[in-house]
Amino acid sequence: MEEGKTNVHRRLEVIDSGNTEADSCKTFVMHNEDHTLGNSLRYIIMKNSDVQFCGYTVPHPSENKINFRVQTYGKPAVDILRKGLEDLNKMCEHVLQTFENSVSEFKESQPEDVEMSDQ
């Protein structure tokens, strides 16, 4: 409950399991998120070999949040989540780069008419 005060505008909440020892198992609540981030983050975290379990639920369709669970073989769950977010970010960056390159390559190979039909 003490956390409730500081978390008013937070989009990320860490559920207090009551067990301070259990750093390796955490449930995060992500506000204003859905399957878009939930499933892609789950995928990339499950790819991490330090992870025992990773999953998420949408507790109720009219509540705009997801519960995101991470259980590890020992490393702090927070670190795993951070690595997941970083990996996902790097991946997106590469996708964006590759896409931009492919589009400009395609536009060069198709002179004029692409520009014309744009008008």
Binding site: R10, R11, L12, V14, M30, E33, T36, L37, S40, V78, L81, R82, L85, E86, L88, N89, C92, E93, V95, L96, F99, E100
Partner: peptide, 22 residues
């Protein structure tokens, strides 16, 4: 499509900062 990729990146960045605050 470029904007979509940026939106996903913005999401990850937002949560990385949140994580730092937490």
């Amino acid at each position: 499509v470029c904007e979509a990729a940026k939106v996903l990146m913005a999401k990850t960045k937002a949560f990385l900062t949140e994580l730092q605050d937490v």
